[in-house]
Computed example of a mutant assay.
Amino acid sequence: MNKSTHTKEYNLLLQLLYSLRLNAGFTQLELAKRMNVPQSYISKIENGERRIDIIELRSICHALNCDMVDFVKELQNRINESK
């Protein structure tokens, strides 16, 4: 059985988080500093080694100056397009 972090939908979430960070012009270290977490925390999220919950997603969106509702809408669009 596949782990839930390895679903197509979760991979789309990770891709969107990664592209959001890059488009915001942040390195993993810069994002980590804004969130007051170690850089390895961001790395593990982006590599799928650490699954995030809704509160962590909210923190990431806030640190990247992204509205979480807009983020979720974009994620849903990408999931729909991938089907």
Rank of each mutant, 00 (worst) to 15 (best):
I45M: 06
E49V: 07
L12Q: 06
L31E: 01
E9R: 12
G48M: 10
G48C: 09
T27H: 05
N36K: 15
Y18Q: 10
L17K: 01
K44V: 00
A32L: 10
R50W: 03
K33E: 14
K8D: 14
V37R: 14
F26E: 11
L12F: 06
K33I: 08
E9T: 10
V37K: 15
I45G: 00
I54Y: 06
V37N: 03
R21N: 04
G48A: 11
L14V: 07
R34L: 13
L14T: 02
Y10L: 08
Y41P: 01
R51E: 15
N47Y: 04
E46K: 07
Y41G: 03
S43I: 06
K44R: 14
I52V: 15
L29W: 00
E49F: 09
E46T: 08
L20C: 12
A32H: 02
S19R: 13
E9H: 11
K8P: 11
L20Q: 10
L12W: 01
L20I: 05
Q15W: 01
A32Q: 01
L12G: 03
A24Y: 07
R50S: 07
Y18C: 06
Q15V: 02
D53T: 03
L22Q: 14
D53P: 02
N11K: 15
Q28T: 05
I45L: 06
K8M: 13
I45V: 15
S19I: 14
I52T: 05
N23F: 01
I54V: 12
N47S: 14
K8V: 14
L13A: 02
L22F: 10
G48K: 04
L16H: 09
E49T: 01
K8S: 15
I42H: 06
P38C: 09
A32T: 06
P38V: 13
I54S: 12
R34E: 14
Q28R: 15
M35E: 03
L31Q: 06
L29F: 04
Q39K: 15
S19Y: 11
Y41V: 05
L14H: 02
P38A: 12
R51D: 10
R34A: 12
Y18K: 11
E49L: 12
E30P: 00
F26K: 13
F26P: 00
L16Q: 12
Y18D: 13
N47G: 09
K44W: 03
N11M: 13
S43N: 13
I42L: 05
L14C: 08
K33T: 11
G25N: 10
M35G: 05
L17T: 03
L13P: 00
D53A: 04
N11H: 14
S19Q: 15
L29K: 10
L20V: 08
K8W: 01
D53L: 01
K8A: 15
E9F: 09
S40E: 07
L29Q: 11
L22Y: 07
Y41C: 08
E30W: 03
L16K: 08
L17I: 12
L31S: 05
E46L: 15
N36V: 13
L29C: 00
L29A: 10
P38I: 06
L17W: 00
E49G: 04
I52N: 00
R50D: 01
G25Y: 10
R50T: 04
Q15R: 04
A32P: 07
T27E: 08
N36E: 15
Q15S: 14
K33G: 00
T27I: 11
